[in-house]
Design a protein around this nucleic acid. Sequence first.
RNA 1: GCCUUGGUAGCAUAGUUGGCCAAUGCGCCACCUUGGUAAGGUGGAGACCGCGGGUUCAAAUCCCGUCCAAGGCUCCA
Length: 637
Amino acid sequence: MQLLFIHADFIEYEAKEKTRIAEEIAGGRKKERIEEALVVFTAVERGDVEKESSIIEKAADEIRSIVQQVHAERVVLYPYAHLSSELASPEQSLELLQGLEEELRARGMAATRAPFGWYKSFTLSCKGHPLSELSRKITVLEGAVAKEGEQERKSKALEAEEKAVSHLFVMGEPGNLVEVDKFEFGATHANLRTFYLYESEKRREVDKIPPHVELMKRLEIADYEPSSDPGNLRFYPKGRMIKALLEDYVRNSTAAYGAVEVETPIMYSVWHPSLKDYLERFPARQYSMMGKEGKPDLFLRFAACFGQFLMSKEMSISYKNLPLKIFELAPSFRKEKRGELVGLRRLRKFTMPDMHTFCATLEDALAEFKKQYELCMHVLEEIGFTPRNYEVAIRFTRDFYEDDVHKAFIEDLVRIAGKPVLIELWDQRFFYFVLKFEFNFIDALGKASALSTVQIDVENAERYGIVYTDADGARQSPIILHCSPSGAIERCMYALLEKAYLDKEAGLLPMLPVWLAPTQLRIIPVAERHMDYIKELLPHLNGLRLDVDDRDETVSKKIRDAGREWIPYVAVVGEKEVERKTLRVTIRKESSQEAQKVEEMSVLELKKRIEEDVQNKPFRALPLPYKLSERAKFTGG
RNA sequence: GCCUUGGUAGCAUAGUUGGCCAAUGCGCCACCUUGGUAAGGUGGAGACCGCGGGUUCAAAUCCCGUCCAAGGCUCCA
């Protein structure tokens, strides 16, 4: 629907001559003069009619908003076909306009409507203030919104979900399900309590800016980019490298698990029948791309599901190939609401490792689910999170839990976690999962964010027409597991920074795992003449990310700066070291806020030590010039 | 998206009953200093005070709009 608004001193019109589609004019009032009105020239377009009630509602919202802004006394709806080249049929248009008129009156606005389908003369006096001429396009399309203004129309799936009742429990000991408000959290399980409160009450009284936001800037990791859409961040060399290493690690882990890596497009047609249902559930979170006539016809994916499902549909899959695992490191887009975006925690553009596993039976799926549960724990552990750093939530339907085998299965998961787990029981299934878990990180401000997750999906194979051939030659729909072993890469970075901050609060020195540290070893010459010795050392320290602080600064200053960068190993080189062929190394992990741990060691010892820290993690070269004097600053902190 | 608060040099802040060349620290540049474990010294450059409009003799300061950020609400495939 196209709207053109004129705030007018008056409008005067006269219906002159009927067209074929003219409506009867009630009371024969062919001539009208209306003072102090917001005149709304309106064209109803093709496609508006199917969404009639939402279109009317949105249009009424717009009109009311403008009426209030310009303090108009009344509204005149004026049918004006020339605003669009894609008109709806006259009958439909008239009906919609009548509906809109009623809606405006129902909202307490004085509304009149010029007769439809007549040749009319009119005189209009525009007030000419800044807001006196405005236009709006009102669109409601599945999932996609052309104008701003979120579309809150709920799909059936959403309504079902809202009706779905769920119950929270804690499983302290395997098998012992306790209602969540009866569970004794104590000091040991304070984080689980925080997580539960977060889930149920959503209480988040916080007045600090999130520690990781400050850190991501100060450590030259990432930053906001005001010239993009909010939630699309820029990554500086150090941040880019950390992100790449995490990506490498997750990719290697899924490959070792047996997944094959693919890449699928990041945008899809909103008109695709299989995608429609999916989209309908999350109408407001779609990043849409405008197509012809300003209608959105492409959307950016919010996960890798679409691409992989569309790909899988065309594959020939035998039961012998199952379980089949497909992995993708998927740049994904979710148009989160403005107020929900925070630093690296909640973004509109992020990188989602997404693995889909096709299984023949629910038993197979459960077996795989358990393996992936353990895989996720392992991946998080290697990234730098022990189970103490996250809380486990397992969610499933009541039906699922009635089965003794399934019950034992859940208990097993709790046993593996080795700590109490939050359990959510759904009375009925909504959306596509029957069982899912997440590992949730609790940050310095008591907010919870999901990292790893696995879901069992029993619907999408059918929806997308994905089949495999069973031993009898019959076509079957597989069960699909969705797994993100680490959760979004950016979110891992957020959690690492928040964890470091929590360590600092606890009296430790904050740092990143050595394999992720942008600089693993910094060498500080006491005077310029020691640079020669350092240059001799460099070849022996190959394969480490090391840099040299060759700036014209005091040793103290350089030590302090290295500390501010959280560098795990800082080696000072002066006369003694040159003489004795050693390095004097400050070891951050063993230092405290009060005292530094300094150790004299040989180059080989140091190299070995760092290699032990790093083990067999992915490696990337130093992302910046190795001489600090040659480095530009990316942020001013 | 809504409500609240904020936006001043690369960064962190001061300045706002409207009024002289917008201040300080860090960083940057130059010089001095060649140094031994958490900020060495001196000097210099750098700001159309988020953006757009308005009120006024005069706007960083007041008003309107807009963008960005933080907190709350809501939400998270």
